[in-house]
Structure formats: structure tokens, C-alpha cells
Design a protein around this nucleic acid. Structure first.
Lengths: 259, 259
DNA sequence: CGTGAGCTTGATGAGGGTCAAAATAGGTGG
DNA sequence: CCACCTATTTTGACCCTCATCAAGCTCACG
């Protein structure tokens, strides 16, 4: 476990901002549409709300705790996580953000950001102006409902993580984590036909997510490999036996659906 | 750990419903008002929204998973918790509901209830008709914002529980739990000047909340007693040394505030 | 080709689980 | 008010999962 987490300014590591082309990043609209059926025009507006995108290098803060949110951020590519630092030597991740998710739902209640958000691999983020969003939402309230559903699912994920940490052993935890990610990434089309997807996390980071030591994460991965349930390496995971993995985790993906 | 959880119909155990008098239960309005300043008239409306109240006996489901919500429920007295049953022998609590809180925020996104809610001691619940609520919210959007802030805080509590389960040892967990409850109950005026408050949970239930065995909960309580930080018994807790307890837990109550 | 980040392996021990039983506390009917 | 019964708390003994420490290994990268 590394002894210190850097606190450089998030700003310094943002890639160049740019305006985006039409339909270049439609994950967001597709995702919300799946959560709550939107009219074609509503989807259109939604896409147009994401005006600028930028790239963030791995291991940088995308959002910092206690900052008032002047904009909403959508993750368009890559993987990010919520976390909190305990005693500058220990860090606990509290949730994950996959493409199509909003990084933080605090803007819904116009409160400050309550947790820092960190890029795990390289990440592309879209920026939504809150003024424009609320204007759009006034005309098309479905947009807000869809976002609140996304927030509700985000919370369900949190509850499920509580269950993992409170009541599942290492093997079940890891299996459940992989099942969830598999499911979530699949719904936004980021899993290959071979059941392979990108997972740019070190084993140490997995430990911070699942409340386990790096060493034990390593041994647990080996368990799953030995049982021919997964294969893992170079930032890629392949689920070899989805049913088997779900069985170990008692995974039931209903909490990830909006209805 | 008991081997089976009963699944009787929640309906059968509801006390008689009745309409309530003016200002009889103002925790809810006071709470929301503290989260987001409301106009006097808005507070008034809020109180009038709670039309009927009913009593629920200890250890009964107030809300059942997967039910579509036709109404919003406010806790007015007592203590309740969210939970999920794993393998019919193990149960994990995922959150707590204190007076003034809504039992579930699913109605905000008109989705189904995602977790069961259980009364711990005897409980008084208020019922809010969603149709009336949304009518009121149309006229006075602040009401909705206040509720969303409450939801945001609910989520913060969840995140903090994740941190407890993932990164704190037994003593810290219990201390943190007590600090949170102390703080939350105090803001709704349910802590006596002697720092005493009601806690109608068995040690087994505390274990289900904090991911520890009953035996270990017991020993951990004794630790806190020995250190003269708390005294506990007969459903009552007294915080003898708030500062000392917070120090052990590294408790920082900011996550419980709306701003 | 050296260097550091990440992965793997081994050895050791602590925190907390499990089992079992005793001690208390509540709750009920006689 | 007492006797009984059950739920809860407490204690002791033992064991297992997982943390910690330490070292060696692999591999990408400058």
C-alpha cells in the first residue's frame, strides 16, 4: 500500500478541451434512454447538452470533494471511481463510474460534491452546463427523471457494495465486482463477443475497492483463474464462465436495471 | 444468528391508521427545512402532506423490495433500517432511517422500491400521497430540492458505511456508527441533555449492520465501556465522551450536513 | 540494460468468526 | 409475586480468513 496520495491540481492534467461532433459520443443518451424511454427529440437535446469533452490522464482527480458543482460531468470513455482518503495512507473506493454514467449526482440537489472522483485508466469526460440542463429539463422533464433513475441505480450499486464488504468473503466479493462491471459495461456495448472487456486497475486498486490487501486480491484472482472462471491480465478481463462466476457471487443483476 | 427470517405480510402488523392533528408530527418539516430553507407556507404544506400515520411493531417490514411505490413514507418516531437478505440465514443492513427521514427515495425517480425497510423498535410512519406531493412540488419546487438533499445525505451515509466496512476495524466501526446516530438524532432533537438516546437494536442486529458477529460486537461494546466512552443497556445509549468517541472513529459529521 | 511499477510467492500472526455454554433480562401465565 | 420460558448478553476456547512483512519475479519503458 503506497504511503501517500498526491494532491496535484486536477486542472493541470486535463487534456485540451474541444467541442464534439454530432453523435460522436452517444453513450450518454443511449444510457439514459434505456433507463427511461425518451422521445427522439429528447435524446437529441441530451446529446447536444454535452458541449465540450476533455481527456484526463490515469490517476487524476476528475472531481474534488467539497467543490460546488457548476457543471455536470458525464463519463464518455474509460473507468473512474469515487473514493475517500482516510489517513493519507489508506484509501477506500466507494463506487464506480462507467461510460454513460454521470460522475456525481450532487447537482440534482444543488449541493456540493460529496466525494472525489478519480480516473482509473485514461478517461474522456463530457461537460454539461447546469444552466442549459435545467432549461432543457423544464421543457422536457423526462430528462430529469431519467437522470434520477441513473442516480437511483448508482445508489443501488452502493448498497450492493455494502453487502459485499459486510457479508461476502474475498472470492465472492471479487466475483461480484466482476459480474457487476461485466453487466454494466455490456449494457453500454463495451464488452466484446468473447466476453472480454478493459479493466485498467491494478491489483492494489482492486484491493482498495473491495477492502482487501493487494496480496489477498492476487491470491483470489488466482482462485478464479484456477477454476477457469476468468482470465485476466494487461488491463483486460475475460469472463470465461459467466454462469459460474455469478453462482459464486450469488449475483442478481436486477439492481442494475431501472425497473 | 437466527436461521430464518419470517416473511409475513407487512399489512397484518400495521396499527390502526388515523389522521393526525396539526403540528403533531413536525419532525419531517423541521428536518427538510434544515436541509433547505423553506418558506413558512412551504413548511405548512409539507406538514399537511402527511395525512395519515400508523404504528408498526418491532421487526416488521415497513417497505418491501420490488414493490412499486404508490406513496412516500416518512419515519416519525423510532428507528428503521434498510436491509437485504442473502441466503436466508444471513442479512446485511445497508442504511438507517431516523425520524424525519423518508424511508425510501425511490419515488423521486418513480422506480420500484429497491430495498426492504424494517422497523427496529416500535415505529410511527407517516404516509404521503404521491399525487398530492407532486402537485405541491409543482407549485413549490423547493420542497423537491429539499427532498433531493435528504436523498443526497442518505447516499453519503451509505458511502460512509462502505468506508466503515471496507477500511475500519471493529472498534472504529462501532464508534463511527454511534457517532453518526448521535449526530443524526440530535439534529432532530432526540438526544437528551445527558447525551442519552434510545437505540432499540440487539447486539445481533448491530452485527448485521456492521458486518461483525454478535460475539465480537459484544466484546467491542465492552471495549468502549471500559474506556468510559459510552454506556449502553436496555435499549439506551449514553455517549459519555463524545470527543473521545469521535477521535476513535475519525468521525467528521460534515457528510451529514446538506452544505 | 537498468529501473521502477506491478505481480507473485512464502512465512507469520492478528482480528475476528464459530461453537458452546453460562449468566441475565424480559415476558407470561398461574 | 413467583415460576417458567425465551431472547439476549456475556464468557471461554479454538480456528480460519485475511493482513502484514519481505523478497523475488516480470515486464514495459526510457
Amino acid at each position: 500500500m503506497s504511503s501517500h496520495y498526491s494532491v496535484e491540481a486536477a486542472e493541470g492534467f486535463r487534456g485540451q478541451e474541444r467541442t464534439i461532433g454530432d453523435g460522436e459520443h452517444d453513450v450518454f443518451a443511449r444510457r439514459l434512454n434505456a433507463l427511461y424511454p425518451l422521445q427522439p427529440q429528447e435524446s437529441k437535446i441530451l446529446e447536444s447538452l454535452v458541449e465540450t469533452v476533455y481527456t484526463v490522464a490515469p490517476h487524476q482527480d476528475i472531481l474534488r470533494e467539497q467543490q460546488p458543482s457548476k457543471e455536470a460531468l458525464v463519463l464518455l470513455e474509460g473507468l473512474a471511481c469515487h473514493y475517500k482518503v482516510l489517513d493519507s495512507a489508506r484509501r477506500q473506493m466507494t463506487g464506480f463510474v462507467v461510460p454513460g454514467d454521470l460522475c456525481d449526482y450532487g447537482f440534482l440537489s444543488s449541493s456540493v460534491t460529496r466525494q472525489s472522483v478519480l480516473s482509473l485508466g485514461q478517461v474522456v469526460v463530457g461537460r454539461i452546463d447546469l444552466r442549459q440542463l435545467s432549461a432543457a429539463a423544464d421543457k422536457m422533464p423526462n430528462i430529469l427523471v431519467a437522470m434520477m433513475r441513473a442516480a437511483a441505480i448508482d445508489q443501488s450499486c452502493g448498497r450492493e457494495l455494502i453487502i459485499s464488504l459486510g457479508a461476502r468473503d474475498a472470492l465472492q466479493r471479487l466475483a461480484h465486482f466482476l459480474c457487476e462491471l461485466f453487466y454494466r459495461l455490456r449494457t453500454v456495448g463495451l464488452v466484446a463477443a468473447s466476453n472480454q472487456f478493459e479493466l485498467s486497475m491494478t491489483q492494489a486498486e482492486l484491493g482498495e475497492a473491495l477492502g482487501l490487501s493487494t496480496v489477498h486480491i492476487n491470491r483470489t484472482i488466482q482462485q478464479l483463474r484456477k477454476r477457469k472462471l476468468i482470465s485476466m491480465g494487461q488491463g483486460m478481463v475475460t469472463i470465461l464462465d459467466p454462469a459460474g462466476l455469478e453462482a459464486i457471487a450469488s449475483f442478481d443483476g436486477r439492481y442494475l436495471r431501472s425497473n
